Computed example of a mutant assay.
Amino acid sequence: MNAINVKIKRVRPEKGHSLPRYMTAHAAGMDLCADLDQELVLEPGERTLVPTGIAIELPEGYEAQIRPRSGLALKHGISLVNSPGTIDADYRGEIGVIVINHGTEPFVIGHNERIAQMVFAPFSRAAFEEVAELGESERGTGGFGHTGR
């Protein structure tokens, strides 16, 4: 299994905030925790930016993807508005998670509660070549459910 070196900084170290961690030996994502001064109540349909208390420095050619936690989605309807969110290698600010309550009940987020997961991935940049025509393919221009339900 590959590991990349990622530098991490606690934004408010005096609070004793939990750092992201893998919860099982084969987990792809590290859980991110909320860094809050007081509990936050998220009403149904409401969204908010939740601070994580960390900033990272990624190696060039990598991104961090911020994704919902499946248990929160299934049990409470809690998800992320921009999923996956992308943390670029040149971003040095605090990571914030845009959480939304799709459930029917208010959801309380406490300090150090696991609210999202972070997955690291290499990426490629594209160089466009403008052409008058594109090559043929079996699919062609079919999209948005063209193969059925």
Rank of each mutant, 00 (worst) to 15 (best):
residue 2 N to K: 13
residue 2 N to V: 11
residue 4 I to G: 14
residue 4 I to W: 10
residue 5 N to L: 09
residue 8 I to L: 11
residue 8 I to H: 11
residue 12 R to K: 10
residue 13 P to K: 03
residue 13 P to I: 12
residue 14 E to N: 07
residue 14 E to P: 05
residue 15 K to Q: 03
residue 18 S to E: 08
residue 18 S to R: 09
residue 18 S to A: 10
residue 20 P to H: 03
residue 21 R to Y: 11
residue 22 Y to P: 07
residue 22 Y to V: 04
residue 23 M to H: 14
residue 26 H to K: 11
residue 29 G to Y: 04
residue 29 G to F: 02
residue 29 G to P: 07
residue 31 D to T: 07
residue 32 L to V: 06
residue 33 C to S: 14
residue 33 C to Q: 11
residue 34 A to H: 02
residue 36 L to P: 01
residue 36 L to D: 02
residue 39 E to W: 00
residue 41 V to T: 10
residue 41 V to N: 06
residue 48 T to D: 06
residue 51 P to R: 00
residue 52 T to A: 09
residue 56 I to W: 14
residue 57 E to M: 10
residue 58 L to V: 11
residue 60 E to W: 04
residue 63 E to M: 07
residue 66 I to Y: 11
residue 70 S to I: 02
residue 70 S to V: 02
residue 73 A to V: 08
residue 76 H to R: 10
residue 77 G to A: 10
residue 77 G to Q: 03
residue 77 G to P: 07
residue 78 I to C: 12
residue 79 S to C: 11
residue 80 L to Y: 05
residue 80 L to K: 01
residue 82 N to K: 13
residue 82 N to Y: 13
residue 82 N to C: 13
residue 82 N to F: 14
residue 83 S to W: 05
residue 89 A to E: 12
residue 90 D to S: 06
residue 92 R to D: 06
residue 92 R to Y: 01
residue 93 G to I: 01
residue 95 I to K: 12
residue 96 G to C: 07
residue 96 G to T: 06
residue 97 V to H: 04
residue 97 V to E: 08
residue 100 I to Q: 11
residue 101 N to K: 00
residue 101 N to F: 03
residue 107 F to K: 02
residue 110 G to F: 00
residue 118 M to S: 13
residue 119 V to D: 13
residue 119 V to S: 12
residue 120 F to M: 15
residue 120 F to G: 14
residue 121 A to V: 13
residue 121 A to L: 13
residue 123 F to N: 08
residue 126 A to N: 04
residue 127 A to R: 03
residue 129 E to N: 09
residue 132 A to L: 01
residue 133 E to S: 12
residue 135 G to T: 15
residue 137 S to E: 05
residue 139 R to M: 03
residue 144 F to G: 02
residue 146 H to V: 00
residue 146 H to F: 05
residue 146 H to S: 13
residue 147 T to F: 00
residue 149 R to P: 00
